[in-house]
Design a protein around this nucleic acid. Structure first.
Length: 466
RNA sequence: GGCGACGUGGCCAAGUGGUUAAGGCGGGGGUCUGCAAAACCCCUAUCAGCGGUUCGAAUCCGCUCGUCGCCUCCA
């Protein structure tokens, strides 16, 4: 399989260093609710993890929490709680969101505040090698000590200086030098270090955690494209300088950014939609289909129209696996449906092997959906149908779809819905269609869709408005 | 100013040198239905513009127009 590597700008054959595949994905700074941009990123890397496992790789997945930084301190002071309490609360919310999105848990979730020993060790090592220096209680990384600084974002120090948006800071030797350790101000949380009380800079925690939990060379490092510079650039500089081993990361993977109404959704613009808000309107499968309908490296624009379209698509997939019953595989059926399922699988794998082309993989799934529905009308054997549905469920599962019916809060209302359906059946029996149709219409307005079949009437909750 | 991405049907989105340009949503017409819904069938594009390379280009090159991202906290 091939993976696009930001470092080289090319698709490369995936050859991990060994087993397990070591993967690190940048996590969040838990000072607020996670938004749908985070959802996109973690859905993407969830899909990548699931596919690697589907392809037989064992994956060791680490994701951090930046639970101490300026924003956390500021927010905690606003709310009059400790930085730790604030972070703790939003970490719990983050896990709720990820679970609701059916994002599989990483193996380890280290937190910056709990990795101070390793962080201090790495900073100390860099100072000892003269690649970092202490200045007024801060510690800075000396970018000129790293011969290939800028290789990930593909620009030179000269290019960056030409940007001219760098502030002059007398504490730094070079304007692009960045903080490894920040001295604390009075009243701020701090940790002990050889350079005085302070806290780690943003980039160093990831280097330290990777070195500690995965080693000095890892296979995949992921995050949003907005992290390429400066965050990941600095991580490479620190890590390779400290360990003297290259490459620090074999495949750098970056997802495109989610836009909202044409604008990038970002904390500074304040135009955020939280994951909870999105999930109150759409199913998690719909959000996932929305994300995976395009390539992970392409930017994506969130609009109600497009997510609603994904909701309808998700409903069609769900309907296709309805009534699936697990059966023993029958071996080699030559029925057209089973053959179609095999073809869908082959197309799916081919698409995914090409840098996780989920858009093409999803297309294969929808073709299988059509084949299954067609077969249902033609009353194929239960074994063949179960087999094809099983393939659809399996492949959809690799992309992280649950294909479970929309959870109905109205479940408590189910007996009443059944009652209305009974009444309506009586009305239809005596051809009181106007009343019968009114019941159907008003239930539809409440999000309950009725479907009349020769065998009787079924109902389901729907997120799609009639 | 520097670096980079992108522009495919009404909307979203694959395809990056050669059979009928995937798929989803929407729209139109059918089948089914008391009517619907769901499902199925059929229809709905020549790839921003111009020029070039080539036997042949959406796909390569150049220019023009347009959109966007990064360079600052950010997934």
């Amino acid at each position: 399989m091939k993976i696009y590597n930001t470092l080289t700008g090319q698709k490369e054959e995936f050859k991990p260093f060994g087993t397990p595949v070591k993967m690190y994905v940048c996590g969040v700074t838990p000072y607020d609710e996670a938004h749908i941009g985070h959802a996109m990123s973690y859905i993407v890397f969830d899909m990548i993890t699931r596919y690697l496992e589907f392809r037989g790789y064992q994956v060791k997945h680490v994701q951090n929490f930046t639970d101490i930084d300026d924003k956390i301190i500021a927010r905690a002071q606003e709310r009059n709680v400790s930085a730790r309490e604030l972070a703790e609360g939003y970490i719990a919310e983050f896990f709720k969101d990820m679970d609701a999105l059916n994002v599989k848990r990483a193996d380890i979730y280290p937190r910056a505040t709990e990795e101070m020993n390793k962080i201090v060790e790495v900073i100390g090592g860099l100072i000892a090698q003269d690649q970092a220096y202490v200045s007024d209680g801060d510690v800075y990384f000396r970018v000129t000590s790293d011969g290939d600084y800028g290789k990930l974002s593909h620009r030179s120090l000269d290019d960056m200086m030409a940007g001219a948006r760098v502030e002059v800071d007398v504490r730094k030797e070079h304007p692009m030098d960045f903080a490894l350790w920040k001295a604390s101000k009075p009243g701020e949380p701090y940790w002990e270090s050889p350079w005085g009380h302070g806290r780690p800079g943003w980039h160093i925690e990831c280097s330290a955690m990777i070195l500690k939990y995965l080693g000095d060379r890892i296979d995949i490092h992921g995050g949003g494209q907005d992290l390429i510079f400066p965050h990941h650039e600095n991580e490479i500089a620190q890590s390779e300088s400290f360990s003297n081993k290259k490459p620090f990361v074999k495949y750098w993977m970056h997802n495109g950014l989610l836009q909202l109404g044409g604008e990038k959704m970002s904390k500074s613009l304040g135009n955020l939609i939280t994951i909870k808000e999105a999930l109150s309107r759409y199913s998690s499968d719909a959000l996932r289909l929305f994300v995976l309908s395009s390539h992970y490296r392409a930017p994506l624009t969130y609009t109600d129209e497009v997510v609603m379209a994904a909701e309808r698509g998700a409903e069609r997939m769900r309907a296709a696996v309805q009534g699936h019953e697990a059966r023993k595989p029958m071996g080699d059926s030559s029925s057209p449906l089973v053959v179609a399922a095999k073809e869908a699988r082959a197309r799916f794998v081919e698409a995914m092997d090409d840098d996780f082309n989920t858009a093409a993989a999803v297309a294969a799934l929808f073709d299988l959906v059509r084949d299954i529905n067609r077969a249902k009308e033609q009353a194929v054997s239960a074994d063949d149908l179960a087999e094809a549905q099983g393939v659809l469920l399996e492949l959809a599962g690799v992309l992280g779809f649950t294909l479970e019916e929309v959870a109905v809060e109205e479940v408590a209302a189910a007996p009443f819905i059944e009652l209305l359906i009974d009444v309506r059946r009586e009305l239809r029996a005596v051809k009181q269609y106007a009343l019968a149709d009114q019941i159907r219409k008003r239930l539809a307005d409440l999000g309950i869709a009725l479907e009349d079949h020769p065998e009787g009437t079924t109902w389901k909750a729907s997120k799609v408005k009639p």
